[in-house]
């Protein structure tokens, strides 16, 4: 398996602060990978280093095996970036913008290119805007054009930096089904987002960053299991019998909460409730949530961050 994105010991310092304090991570070809972290954690700086927009002070970055500094042309050909900020060229229409972008990547204007541009426009619901000037588009449409621009040279590695910020639900779903399709075709996807449920649903592996370091890096499943529990919530007719109070993790009015690790624990807990004479009027089991994992990891002691910084 080829390593699609290989980041080793990358450091980036600005005059007064350190944006990246030694980041290492590897994303394998075909992965759907999430890079999460609060604002200012260094996610965008890392992506900028990968794209050659920023030069790292130390360490190395490779895209599909090509070093982003010494072999920058091959590295950039392999990479499609959807930037966080909405930018556009007011001189051109949507179609012109895409043709130019393809040209910059060395793709000649052929019927095949025009067909691919038409396909991209259709997938991103932009067909009827193709000949409109970029200025006439709404923010959400401009963002979709940015996605099309990143894909126009068919890069094997696609980086999306908060692609759904301020985007409506319908578009978000269209976008994700398209990105999933690309992933299924073998494209590697690196995603940053503040919508953690998106990352949880889409990504197989997750890295979390804080203050320029990677503080967690594991499969989504492992992270959820290690840091977040399933919860059984029951609503009782009367108070919880005293014998069961030590098992309870939380109480909100008539709702009582019990942490469980496995569904098999549900039955025994319910049996004990029944035996103690409790009458259940309502019940629910909640799944682990990435948001809970995120909050726990971000509140971990600073000292622990250091140790996990080297995790890959």
């Amino acid at each position: 398996m080829t390593i699609a994105i290989d980041v080793e010991g990358v450091e980036k310092r600005y005059a007064s602060f350190t944006a990246l304090a030694g980041v290492s991570l590897r994303v394998e070809e075909g992965e759907f990978f999430a890079l999460l972290g609060p604002n200012g954690a260094g996610k965008t700086t890392l992506i900028s280093c990968l794209a050659g927009l920023t030069r790292a002070n130390a360490g190395s970055l490779r895209v599909m095996g090509h070093d982003v500094v010494t072999d920058y042309q091959a590295a950039r050909l392999a990479l499609g970036i959807v930037p966080q900020e909405i930018v556009f060229d007011p001189f051109f229409s949507v179609r012109e913008t895409l043709r130019f972008q393809a040209g910059y990547f060395g793709i000649a204007r052929t019927a095949a290119l025009d067909a691919w541009i038409d396909e991209l426009l259709a997938k991103l619901s932009l067909t009827d805007k193709a000949d409109k000037n970029m200025r006439q588009l709404s923010g959400g449409m401009k963002r979709r054009v940015l996605v099309a621009q990143a894909l126009v040279h068919r890069p094997p590695v696609i980086v999306l930096d908060e692609p759904t910020a301020g985007v409506d639900v319908e578009l978000r779903q269209t976008l994700w089904s398209f990105i999933r399709e690309l992933n299924a075709q073998g494209h590697t996807i690196l995603l940053t987002t503040h919508y953690l449920e998106e990352a949880q649903q889409l990504c197989s592996r997750i890295a979390m960053m804080k203050q320029g370091r990677i503080v967690a890096l594991d499969t989504t499943e492992h992270l959820l299991n290690a840091f977040s529990e399933r919860v059984l919530r029951v609503k009782l007719e009367r108070d919880l019998p005293d014998t069961l109070v030590p098992l309870r993790s939380k109480q909100q009015g008539a709702w009582h909460q019990f942490e469980i690790h496995d569904y098999s624990e549900v039955e025994s807990l319910l049996a004990r409730l029944r035996e103690s004479g409790a009458v259940i009027s309502n019940l629910e089991v909640t799944e682990p949530e990435l948001e809970a994992v995120f909050v726990k990891i971000m509140h971990q002691d600073q000292g622990q961050d250091q140790d996990q910084g080297a995790t890959r």
Binding site: I81, V87, F88, D89, F100, F105, Q149
Partner: peptide, 16 residues
């Protein structure tokens, strides 16, 4: 291009 940010479009491709 610098002020509007669209200089990005020519910085991302493999142009020398």
């Amino acid at each position: 291009s610098k002020i509007t940010g669209n200089i990005l479009f020519i910085l991302l491709p493999p142009l020398s």
